[in-house]
Design a protein around this nucleic acid. Structure first.
Length: 121
DNA sequence: GACCTGACGCCCC
DNA sequence: AGGGGCGCCAGGT
């Protein structure tokens, strides 16, 4: 009972966290990419690992969340194997004009977008 | 409960 | 300068 309550709270927080991650992810502009660390940094909770964990469970919202625009610090498409096909992530990025060279975003520094940029207005 | 393993990244050598 | 160590935090075994 009390334990059950605790579990429920935990569930709530988890869903809330997922939602935060999805929200930030959907703000990434077309043709740009961001990183797991940048999202964790912006949210101020969790870690880069947890962002990856959250995105791994987003298949239900796949059409709303542009998860393909999130790569690791080096620009690697580290999550590509979790898409419906192993090449889908790359295809989506290329469609947005991003060049991929053996699973790494070409010139990541020119494409990188940090959620902080939202506040620079 | 220890131990491992992630869609990671900083620090240190 | 780049590779390994280790912290991160949740889940599975």
């Amino acid at each position: 009972m009390a334990l059950k309550k605790k579990e429920e709270v935990k569930e709530y927080k988890k869903d809330h966290y997922f939602q935060r991650v999805y929200d930030v992810t959907s703000l990434v502009p077309y043709g740009r990419v961001t990183t797991y660390g940048a999202i964790a940094d912006f949210l101020g909770l969790g870690s880069a690992r947890m962002v990856g964990w959250a995105l791994n469970h987003c298949h239900a919202q796949d059409h709303i969340v542009p998860a393909h625009r999130v790569v690791n610090r080096k620009g690697e498409l580290s999550g590509r194997l979790h898409f419906q096909t192993p090449t889908l992530m790359q295809e989506r990025l290329e469609q947005e004009g991003i060049v991929i060279e053996n699973n790494i975003v070409f010139k990541i520094n020119e494409k990188f977008w940090h959620p902080r940029e939202l506040e620079e207005y």
